[in-house]
Write a protein that binds this DNA or RNA. Structure first.
Length: 738
RNA sequence: GCGAGCGUGGCGGAAUGGUAGACGCACUGGACUUAAAAUCCAGAGUCCGAUAAGGACGUGGGGGUUCAAGUCCCCCCGCUCGUACCA
């Protein structure tokens, strides 16, 4: 009998579905195990990254089920987002239509992959049945003071009259219009993640089953630093500048003050100083991306003001407005100590500012390290640590400064000027201000009849949707037209999976039983934002008594990228799909045009470089099991892997061999105890079996599935070397658990 | 720029600080076949040597710790992810 995956896989998939084999139910007599893969954005078709992610999760789910756990393994759709709007504009369709049809086709593909999901728990975030609960959560956050409104900077496209995402800004220009992008101040909703910063940081220590690199990245992202704030006085003025520094010990080396272009004082200066205004406007043209800001050339504008040194009589510091000072970090102002900071040093050289060394060193300046203080009056002779302590004491004595802890992490801006997202349930009333939508009026549904031909936010342009009445005074009022960041939906979906209760976000007993997620698996690109937002969200929900745990994911595994070789035509220099390339003894040609093709670097699969392999084609020609087997066998999950056609064929051949072997076996005995007499062959076989079981178990538990596959192949090679199976040489499969 | 990770044969990768290259892919030879494919058996890190015996070299580059380094430490190079409005 020939191995025919299309028949076998369909047969079993039907059986699983009919018998609801993977339906999860609360069972207090069994240990529970909740395994979850990061849910996909419904982009249209599954790609190899999905195949990898869900194969890894499926292995864990099936393994734990086999080991006697009550397994919850759900799947859903992260369905709001920017691509749906782009597709709607390009294809003249509606985001909802596009999204739901994508979900349909992707669900069918996941089903073909034979994944062990409980489809009865499927959820879709763009459905009001889902997002109505997060509108309620937002209102509760608002009432609890966790949500607030403040001004922020966005990328403004003056031609499209719309806010652009960072991704839509290419080299400072709008991706569609090509217009120079401006920074624009806009009010938006924020969640106070900073209030939870310390706990998010401290609890990282207890996440024993998270990869160290993810914890380190989150630690650095939160960026707790211990320093001091110092109030400087401006000469001939009542004005003060509060600065933040982590090195108050270098105060005697301070030779200038720099403030952010967005600092209130900068605006004030600009009122009477046209050059300052020009400089601030120039800075407004800079990118909002951190990487761009840090890489950009450092510029400063020297104001006419001088700042008094707090400890040195008649010493004045020059005051600059500088493009590299971030308003979001510390106080938006610093003192510069060029002798002991690289950036301050570069800046001082450029603008001819004094450089005063205050730490003894034989190395050349700037010297960043610790040491004994000089030129520093009461700090002279002290080491760095003591000098920091002493300087803070002196500042406190003069009541001009104090020890201050700051965090790099900024509050989470959740407002997006987009149509395809969850409406923010706020109403603006001329008389009453920001008014929460009444709970009984939820959900605020997203209208489907929208027009993308009008410039700007379609929600804002909708003829009727935003017009409503104030819940307070019943006067005409307008709705908030911003929608939520899509990270909002993905910050709590894992908890919603525990029970799709139509009346409330969570059922307490289901939460108590299933949460937290025992094993979460997804791409490493989510190491900080999604995972940190989810950790924050649970804490925020806990603070309003909606959940009683704060860590959503006990164990985390991050997977690497799926890569493939790239191909370009030799003459026309165009990217070519691997499926369009023919290989003739390592000479490559385009299948249709016969043009020579040059193989390039192996890179992450991406549509733009066409180095993608469609999982559907693999499933159609080899079956899902081959695709899954190869996924597991090629590379350890956390490393980038290369998809190779020959590797797939190798997996295909192995499954064929395995199939043939199993079907030619005449006797398989399963016994729980050893027979008294064993042939030498059986003894050897038992040893091999037990070695394999031990190694495979170890490899699965340690998430090195490629080694488990290698062990399976080793065992199989031994098994298949026994050619003749007589009645006396029955196989005895002995399962040993520790 | 900053933060994090990775780098081992022709390729994917294996290796509690202890025989580098498990397992697989590709390759080569053989068996089977009229032939090919498939399948089965065998070989193989690289270089020198004769296709032997034997030897030298070998885990991105340079240095260090150690009886012993792919593994630990320092410096450098390259690639990948993230960098707050892509998801």
């Amino acid at each position: 009998m020939k191995y025919n995956p299309s028949i076998i896989e369909k047969k079993w998939q039907k059986k699983w579905a009919d018998k609801k084999v993977f339906k999860a139910k609360i069972d207090y007599n069994k240990p529970k195990y909740y395994v979850l893969e990061m849910f996909p954005y419904p982009s249209g078709a599954i790609h190899m990254g999905h195949v990898r992610n869900y194969t890894l999760g499926d292995l864990v789910a099936r393994y734990k089920k086999a080991r006697g756990f009550n397994v919850l393994h759900p799947m859903g759709w992260d369905a709001f987002g920017l691509p749906a709007e782009n597709a709607a504009i390009e294809n003249k369709t509606l985001p909802s239509k596009w999204t739901y049809s994508n979900i349909e086709s992707m669900k069918s593909q996941l089903t073909q992959m034979g994944l062990s999901y409980d489809w009865d728990r499927e959820l879709t975030t763009c459905n009001p049945d889902y997002y109505k609960f997060e509108q309620k959560m937002f209102l509760d956050f608002f009432k609890a003071g966790i949500a607030y409104k403040k001004e922020t900077l966005v990328n403004w496209d003056p031609i499209e009259q719309t806010v652009l995402a960072n991704e839509q800004v290419v080299d400072g220009k709008g991706w569609r219009s090509g217009a120079e992008i401006e920074k624009k101040k806009m009010k938006g909703w924020f969640l106070k993640i900073s209030d939870f910063a310390d706990d998010l940081l401290e609890e990282l220590k207890n996440l024993k089953d998270w990869p160290d690199r993810v914890k380190i990245m989150q630690n650095n992202w939160i960026g707790k630093s211990d320093g001091a704030t110092i109030n400087f006085s401006i000469d001939n003025s009542d004005e003060k500048i509060e600065i933040y520094t982590t090195r108050p010990d270098t105060i005697f080396g301070a030779t200038f003050i720099a403030i952010s272009p967005l600092h209130p004082l900068a605006s004030k200066i600009a009122e009477s100083d046209e050059e300052a205004l020009n400089f601030i406007n120039f800075c407004q043209k800079q990118s909002t991306k951190e990487a761009d800001i840090e890489k950009a050339e450092k510029f400063g504008y020297e104001t006419t003001l001088l700042v008094k040194h707090p400890f040195k009589e008649k010493t004045y510091l020059r005051l600059f407005i500088a493009n590299f000072i971030l308003m979001d970090y510390g106080t938006g102002a610093i003192f510069g100590c060029p002798a002991h900071d690289q950036r301050d040093y570069d800046f001082a050289k450029k603008y001819n500012i004094d450089i005063i060394p205050v730490i003894e060193t034989k190395e050349k300046l700037p010297y960043i390290g610790d040491g004994i203080h000089i030129n520093s009056e009461f700090l002279n002779g002290l080491d760095t640590k003591s000098a920091i302590g002493r300087s803070i004491k002196e500042l406190e004595k003069l009541k001009i400064g104090k020890e201050t802890i700051t965090y790099r992490i900024r509050d989470w801006g959740v407002s997006r000027q987009r149509y395809w997202g969850c409406p923010i349930p706020i109403i603006y009333c001329k008389k009453c201000g920001e008014v929460p939508v009444l709970e009984e009026d939820l959900p605020v549904n997203l209208p489907e009849d929208i027009n993308f031909d009008i410039k700007g936010n379609p929600l804002d342009a909708h003829p009727t949707w935003k017009h409503t009445k104030c819940p307070n005074c019943n006067q005409p009022a307008v709705r908030e037209t911003d929608t939520f960041d899509t990270f909002f939906e993905s910050s709590w979906y894992f908890a919603r999976f525990t029970d799709l209760n139509p009346k409330q976000a969570f059922s307490r007993d289901a939460l108590d039983y299933w949460m937290p997620v025992d094993q979460y698996i997804g791409g490493v690109e989510h190491a900080v934002m999604h995972l940190l937002y989810s950790r924050f969200f649970m804490r925020a929900l806990k603070s309003i008594n909606m959940v009683d745990f704060s860590e959503p994911f006990v164990s985390l595994q991050t997977q690497g990228m799926v890569c493939h070789q790239t191909f370009k035509t030799k003459n026309s220099n165009q990217w070519v799909f691997p499926s369009d390339v023919s290989n003739n003894k390592n000479e490559f040609f385009h299948l249709e045009t016969n043009e020579p093709v040059i193989p390039g670097r192996t890179e992450k699969m991406s549509k733009s470089k066409k180095n993608v392999v469609d999982p559907q084609k693999i499933i159609d020609s080899f079956g899902a099991d081959t695709a899954r087997f190869f996924m597991l066998s090629d590379s350890p999950p956390d490393r980038d892997m290369e998809w190779s056609d020959s590797g797939v064929e190798g997996s295909w051949r192995f499954l064929n061999k395995l199939w043939k072997f199993v079907h030619n076996l005449e006797v398989i005995n399963v016994k729980t105890s050893l027979p008294s007499k064993l042939s030498n062959q059986n003894k050897e076989l038992l040893t091999d079996l037990n070695i394999a079981i031990q190694e495979i178990t170890k490899s699965i538990e340690s998430f090195t599935f490629n080694i488990a596959v290698a062990s399976i192949r080793t065992l199989f090679n031994k098994l298949s070397s026994y050619k003749v199976l007589t009645d006396e040489d029955k196989f005895y499969f002995v399962v040993c658990y520790k």
